[in-house]
Structure formats: C-alpha cells, structure tokens
Design a protein around this nucleic acid. Structure first.
Length: 305
DNA sequence: GCATGTCAAGTTGTG
DNA sequence: CACAACTTGACATGC
C-alpha cells in the first residue's frame, strides 16, 4: 500500500512553527536567550503533535519534520543543548509523547537537512559544520522517533568521483544514530540516481528516489529501473522505501522545470509505484491540500472533515 | 499597525 | 564578478 507524506507545513490548517534569528538572540543575555529558545522548542513540539493529529485524521501516514524544530540549535554563537533549557523536562516529555503518538498511529517521520549540509565538500570547515548539524538531527530523530535523515550528494567541484569519495570517508565520522538513519537523494543539478546508487550500495545507505529531479537531470536509467534499484537499497534497513514526487510549476515545456507546482498532476506519478509498499513525500506548494487531492485521486480516500 | 527587508550555513549557473 | 535559485515563511525592524 502506498503511503503519501506531507512536508513540513500546512497551507490552510492553523498549524505553524516558530522561529527566531541569531541576531535577535544576541541582543539578550544568556538566561533570556535560553528562556526564549525553551519557549520556542516547546511551542514547536506542541505544533508537531497538532500536525500529527491532523494528518492522522486524513489517513496521511508520513510527515517530514522541518529542520529548525529547535531553532538555532547548532549556531556557533547562540547554540545550546536541550539540557541547557529551563524547560528541558517539558521538552523531553513532549518529545516522548510525539514518539508514542507516531508509533501508535503508524506515522513515519523523516528529516531533511537543507542545502548547507555538504558531506562531499573539500572544505573542512563546511564538513565540520555539516557533521554538527547532522548530529543535532540525529539527536532530534532519536527523541521523536524519526526513521530517516535524508541529504543530497552536494557539490561536484569538477570531479564527482573524488567528491563522493570524500562523502564516503566523512560518512564514517558520523555517530551510529546518524549513520543508521542517513539516506541519499538524487538532486536536479549534479547527482543523478546512476551517480549515487553505487555509493549507496557500498555504504549501505538507502537511496531516496526523487522522480522529478530525475526528469530534470536524467541519466541512463529509466524511471522503472531507478525505482527498482531504489527498492533494493532499502532491504538491508528493513524499512519502506522513500520516493519524492512533485510537478513542474510551469509545465514540462517550460525553460525552468525546477519550481514546484501547487498540486501534483497524477500523470507525473510513475504507474510502477502504484502497487508498491512505499512512502511518497508530496512536494507541492499547496501542502496538505495537495496530499489530500492526490490520495483522493488514487482512491486512498482521506476521511472527510 | 502595517509594510518591508532579513534570515547561519553551500554550490552552481546565469546575467 | 555578483547574485539569484534552491525552499519558504515568519520574524524583526522601522515608519
């Protein structure tokens, strides 16, 4: 059975996540910073629980958690750890409530660190900051029970083979809790499925197949072949494979295919996916409305309000 | 109050 | 060589 997932936020449902900036925090003393950060973390965990309850009511069984759930956690000047927060106990209690909820309601959680995280970079400072961010996400994943931390291959620097070798050696520097959750996704500019699959097999990293990126950056593999290869990389981890779907905002004949549309055109969903047991994250700007519409289309009817 | 510019971070490709 | 695109709002500031 296919499982469709919502990414990070809502268009209409009144569930939102709070943020702050380092600049603003720097205008306060340390106790005031920690008080504000503690309030934001608590607020965001409450929002996450509300998000899971809403998607559960629509039979949506996967959710991508936004990276800054704990705002500015790894910032060099204002960063912190959960134990530093005045509300540390509440943060821990809310996190385990979320973890129990997603377990009892069969909801998959994933994380997707953004483009600043580059394990293939030749710059040691970039790799160090990437590792720090991934370790934060590993800590968060453990708290709330997220299965997957999904990243891209990063830059090519004129030599993809050498870059992926740096990825491989830096991968070994990660803690076990990050390594056992890390996945690799093809992007729309640099690394195609054919580029990444050998590395995924070698390091036993599951491959997340984004078919829209594949259509932007094709390789010798067909959609069917990439799908099958993706599925195989997940066997060792014993989890459902992840796919990503989106539709081009300006159609398939536009100059730029990369911007995402509000909704998914169902014909963009590969028909070979339909009978699979897999999770498809829906990357669409209309957010929950797009997920519900797509599930309706395929007869995976979400219950009505 | 409301509008507008900014936000920690990397890399690539375009203008 | 500088800057926008990735993704996206939401926050902070200033009028």
């Amino acid at each position: 059975m296919l499982r469709f997932g919502l990414c990070c936020m809502f268009r209409e449902q009144p569930v939102s996540f709070a943020q702050t900036t380092a600049r603003h925090l720097e205008s306060m003393n340390r106790p005031a910073q920690l008080a504000k950060l503690s309030a934001l973390c608590t607020e965001n965990l409450n929002s996450l629980l509300a998000a899971l309850k809403w998607i559960d009511s629509r039979d949506i069984r996967a959710f991508r958690v936004l990276s800054p759930l704990f705002p500015r956690y790894t910032h060099p000047d204002v960063g912190y750890s959960v134990a530093d927060l005045p509300g540390a106990d509440q943060v821990a209690a809310l996190s385990s409530r979320i973890n129990r909820y997603r377990r009892e309601h069969d909801i998959r959680l994933s994380l997707h660190p953004d483009q600043f995280n580059v394990l293939s970079s030749p710059r040691t400072g970039v790799v160090e900051k990437t590792i720090e961010e991934l370790e934060y996400q590993g800590m968060l994943a453990e708290l709330i029970g997220a299965e997957v931390i999904n990243i891209h291959g990063g830059g090519a620097y004129g030599d993809k083979t050498a870059a992926l070798e740096r990825f491989a050696s830096n991968f070994r520097l990660l803690s076990k809790r990050v390594r056992k959750r890390l996945t690799l996704e093809n992007d729309d500019l640099t690394y195609s499925p054919a580029d990444l699959l050998p590395l995924c097999r070698r390091l036993k990293i599951p491959f997340v197949y984004d078919v829209h990126h594949h259509r932007c950056l094709p390789d010798r593999l067909t959609v069917d072949a990439a799908t099958a290869a993706c599925m195989e990389t997940w066997v060792g981890r014993g989890q459902e494979p992840y796919f990503h779907i989106s539709s081009p905002r300006h159609g398939w004949h536009a100059d730029n295919l990369r911007p995402h549309a509000d909704y998914i055109d169902p014909v963009d969903v590969p028909s070979i996916w339909l009978p699979l047991r897999a999770t498809i994250d829906v990357e669409a700007k209309a957010k929950e409305l797009a997920v519900v519409r797509l599930m309706d289309h395929f007869g995976l009817r979400a219950s009505d309000a």
